[in-house]
Design a binder for these strands. Structure first.
Lengths: 363, 363
DNA sequence: CTGAAAGCGCTAACAC
DNA sequence: GTGTTAGCGCTTTCAG
């Protein structure tokens, strides 16, 4: 067996293609970029030569030469499911606009500062940050150098753009849904100091007001399953016990569901639960969580177009923050309240393993 | 209110720093790269100037000039939770070795070809592909141009490196665990044609053989919750009914759990369940799935070091494939078999809300 | 230890 | 249409 080639063939350059096609380098450049300035015959010849050489343009040289890099930097949390949806949307939007994305992940061992720093070295023209925890002053610093757009975190600043879900409206949708089902004692498990938590608290209060329900009950929660579990125990201890609860996010709601089921509290019979995010968690058939869905596609489309508008020097709109309406996804954790002890089976009561399936939302 | 600055300050270059520090450009380069060739006094002065100007090196120009880019391209699935773990590990490993990562995501609207193509334009020196579905011939094509390493998919090829979990050994761990608990009727729900599925089937068969259990039962499964749900129904219909089952992955196992609980089959009392991946799903407190964990840290460390060895021209090792031993994470879905109808409570039987906890692996 | 010159691969100006 | 010239920001020779 001969040794594998220790020396790889040098990559073909424009000059190689030019030589092979018998034309000048700039002409090849013109052809490769599909811009006017070459005859069809030449185009043909050059493309053939490039093909034969397996030529691939060098984006770094290209970006170095032209002042525009057409690069948008994106900082995202590699562990965060919803960020996956957002990144997908950003790719499509950027692609449609002729921009490239430079991804930089935040991981347990790589903080936002580092993620941003690497993007700066890559000479991105703008930055899109997904749910950043960077202090506002840092964001402002960045915005001083380039357009910065924050997704999914409310930032009060005159220098960065923000695109986010209307958190308050989201919780209001949830409360409306529960109120329509007939619930009057609706609690809220909040997200503490997490991004959006304050808005969701406010939305909850306002919705209760609108429905003339005045016994608001806000329990301290958090972002994780465990936070939800702890809050659920307090929820059950409340007197009078609420018949429904809106929870800060799906993860937390999952923890709530867990405790409820362990305690033998039927969901949605004795307690209706609404989450937030419509994460993959909520969609699991055995969770089937009614939840408030964020419109990732719209959010990302707006984010990209806003950032590009900045790059094109369009004047700043009055409001630097754009809030996107969420929508409610009704699954199986919400139903009309059931004051009695009999546990009616909802479409999917995971732990009501007993017989008697009584389908239909209304008994 | 004055208008915001429509014209952003040009980024500082080496020349700017040089001018400010009163030295030549190359000298600044030497200082910025921390290589020998400058006096301490100069170093001090240059660094100060760079700082004041907010200088950031231009990675593109740097890579263009030096033949090495020190860039490793990574293709990953943005929706795949386990890829998140892998990306985290790759970052640490690459960082420690002085390499950068160029991330390129596969999304519903962006296939692997595109993800790879963008990486090629970025002049990565090597490619690491996470669970790719690219045909082997494509992989070989790529490997012709640069070192290519595939993670988490068995590829029989002499030209690409592979680092993956020992799938067969993983299932064997699961079967060993179940056999030790006293199970003799152990089924397997497989992953069809998914990467690793064949190996896991084989591991299951071999493990059964080793334990002298000859009634192997392999049920067609898949990767999703729904696949698991369907398989679980067949599992329950089997006669004699198995007392334990190993499942292709955690997602599928979740679907299995769901059906079991709905059908009133106690887990782990009447049926023990083992998953594969140790995904976040398995870790959820209300799922608490016993599962086979892949060692993401070791996998990524090996992947990076192998790829760098290639770049450094080290000779290819005999075996281009490296299989990493997984380990078992015992949670609450496995326990000794209970032939009777009484449902004993394991450490966490989400639906066995009854009392009597009988701890200890052996009854 | 420091500076001058050259050039990575490409594109933007100009000539012809 | 096509070729020539210049230079993006940086690193690499090589002189001094």
């Amino acid at each position: 067996m001969t040794q594998e080639p220790p020396t790889r063939p040098r990559r073909a350059t424009l000059a190689d293609v030019a030589a092979r096609a018998g034309v000048s380098v700039p002409l090849v450049s013109i052809v490769m970029r599909d811009v006017p300035g070459a005859s069809d015959a030449t185009r043909e010849r050059v493309k053939k030569a490039a093909d034969e050489l397996g030529y691939r343009p060098d984006s770094r040289a290209r970006m170095l030469r032209s002042s525009r890099t057409q690069l948008i930097g994106v900082v995202f949390g590699v562990q965060h499911p919803f960020h996956g949806d957002l990144v997908s949307g950003l790719y499509s939007a950027a692609d449609a606009a002729g921009y490239e994305l430079a991804l930089s992940a935040v991981t347990p061992g790589r903080n936002e500062e580092r993620a941003v720093a690497s993007l700066l070295q890559d000479r991105c023209e703008a930055l899109i940050l997904l749910g950043p925890t960077l202090p506002t002053t840092e964001l402002a610093n960045l915005a001083d150098r380039m357009p910065v757009l924050v997704v999914a975190r409310p930032v009060r600043s005159r220098v960065v753009d923000v695109v986010r879900t209307d958190d308050a409206a989201g919780i209001q949708l949830a409360v409306d849904h529960l109120a329509e089902l007939g619930h009057s004692r609706i609690a809220h498990i909040d997200g503490g100091r997490a991004p959006g938590a304050a808005e969701r608290r406010r939305g909850y209060r306002e919705a209760l007001d609108r429905h003339g329900l005045d016994d608001a009950l806000i329990l301290p929660g958090g972002l994780t399953e465990d936070d939800g579990a702890a809050a659920a125990r307090r929820l059950l201890a409340a007197s009078p016990r609420p018949t429904a609860v809106t929870v800060f996010n799906d993860r937390c709601a999952t923890g709530v569901l867990d405790v409820l089921r362990r305690e033998g509290v039927s969901v949605p019979g004795e307690m209706s639960v609404v989450g937030f995010d419509d994460s993959s968690l909520a969609r699991l058939s055995h969770v089937a969580l009614t939840t408030v869905a964020q419109d990732a596609e719209r959010i990302t489309a707006l984010a990209v177009s806003r950032v590009i508008a900045r790059l094109d020097g369009h004047p700043a709109p009055d409001e630097r923050e754009q809030v996107i309406a969420p929508h409610l996804v009704v699954r199986s954790t919400t139903a009309p309240p059931r004051p009695g002890l009999r546990r009616p089976a909802g479409p999917h009561p995971a732990c009501d393993a007993g017989p008697l399936p009584l389908p239909g939302p209304l008994g």
